[in-house]
C-alpha cells in the first residue's frame, strides 16, 4: 500500500534519513521505533509531503507521491496526525473536526462521521464548543486522532500518540487504535517512543538508528529480540 524505497532527506546540511526503505501493507499496523532524533517524524513528514526527499521514491497505492502537495496526498486517503497533537488552539472542537474534513463535500456523511468520532471519544462531545487549546493533553490527543479520521483515511500515520499522557489515557488510546484497525480495517503506521506498547499493538515493526533502518521483523519477534530488549524495552 505504502512503499518507501531508498529515501534520503536533508535538512540543509543535516542528513536526517539515509536511505530508508519501508513498506506498509493494507490492513496492517506497522510501527517505527527508535531513539530521539532517529528520523521517525522526518519519515512521516516526508510521506505526507511536508518535506521533500532529496532522493528515493515514495509510492502509495501504486502511485508516486513524493512530489505531491500535502493536500493532494490527503485526498488520496493518507492522513498524518503530527507529533505533539497540534490542535488549532483557538478553534472549537467542532471546528477542529471540520478542518479534518476540509477536502470533503459530502455534508451528510461528514456529520455522520462527526457523530462516530463522538462515539469513539465521548468526552469530545461534551467539549464541542470549547476551544481546542483549553483541552487536556489526553483530550487533545483524542481530538487529533478524531480530526484525522474525519478525512476518511485509508492509511493513518500517528506520531507518538502516547507523548506526555497518563498511562490510563495511553491504554485507552491504544485500544482505540487497535479497534480501528480490527473493526474498520484501517491501515496504521505508528511512530512510538513507548516501544513495548507499540510492539504489543503492531503487527510488524522497523527499528531506526540515526536515519537508517537497522532491523525489521514481526512485532512479536522484535519484542523478543535481545538487542531490542536491551536498547528499547529497558530489560535484559
Amino acid at each position: 500500500m505504502l512503499v518507501l524505497d531508498d529515501v534520503h532527506v536533508h535538512y540543509g546540511k543535516i542528513h536526517a534519513l539515509k536511505g530508508v526503505s519501508i513498506e506498509v501493507r493494507e490492513g496492517e499496523i506497522v510501527t517505527i521505533i527508535g531513539a530521539n532524533g532517529a528520523g521517525k517524524s522526518t519519515t512521516l513528514q516526508t510521506v505526507s509531503g511536508l518535506l521533500r526527499p532529496s532522493s528515493g521514491t515514495i509510492t502509495y497505492a501504486g502511485q508516486r507521491i513524493d512530489a505531491m502537495a500535502p493536500s493532494d496526498i490527503v485526498a488520496l486517503g493518507l492522513c498524518h496526525t503530527p507529533e505533539g497533537r497540534r490542535i488549532f488552539p483557538e478553534l472549537t472542537v467542532d471546528e477542529n473536526l471540520s478542518m479534518g474534513a476540509y477536502l470533503r463535500r459530502d455534508r451528510a456523511a461528514i456529520e455522520a462521521d462527526r457523530g462516530r468520532a463522538f462515539e469513539l471519544f465521548p468526552i469530545l462531545a461534551e467539549r464541542r464548543t470549547q476551544h481546542g487549546g483549553t483541552l487536556s493533553g489526553g483530550e487533545q490527543q483524542m481530538l487529533a486522532i478524531a480530526r484525522s479520521l474525519m478525512s476518511r483515511p485509508k492509511l493513518l500515520m500517528l506520531d507518538e500518540p502516547s507523548l506526555g499522557l497518563a498511562p490510563i489515557i495511553v491504554q485507552q488510546i491504544f485500544q482505540t487504535i487497535a479497534r480501528l484497525n480490527q473493526d474498520e480495517g484501517l491501515t496504521i503506521l505508528l511512530v512510538e517512543q513507548n516501544a513495548a506498547l507499540a510492539l504489543r499493538t503492531a503487527h510488524r515493526g522497523y527499528v531506526y538508528e540515526t536515519g537508517r533502518v537497522t532491523m525489521e521483523d514481526a512485532a512479536s519477534a522484535l519484542a523478543a529480540d535481545e538487542q531490542v530488549r536491551a536498547a528499547y524495552l529497558g530489560s535484559i
Binding site: 500535502p70 490527503v74 497540534r86 483557538e90 478553534l91 478542518m99 477536502l103 480530526r147
Partner: peptide, 19 residues
C-alpha cells in the same frame, strides 16, 4: 475557518488537506 487555522499553524493546516 481555514483562514483562522492557517493563522495558527500552517503546517498542520496543510496536513488537513488545506492548500
Amino acid at each position: 475557518t481555514a483562514m483562522r487555522a492557517c493563522s495558527m499553524d500552517q503546517e498542520t493546516a496543510a496536513l488537513m488537506g488545506i492548500s
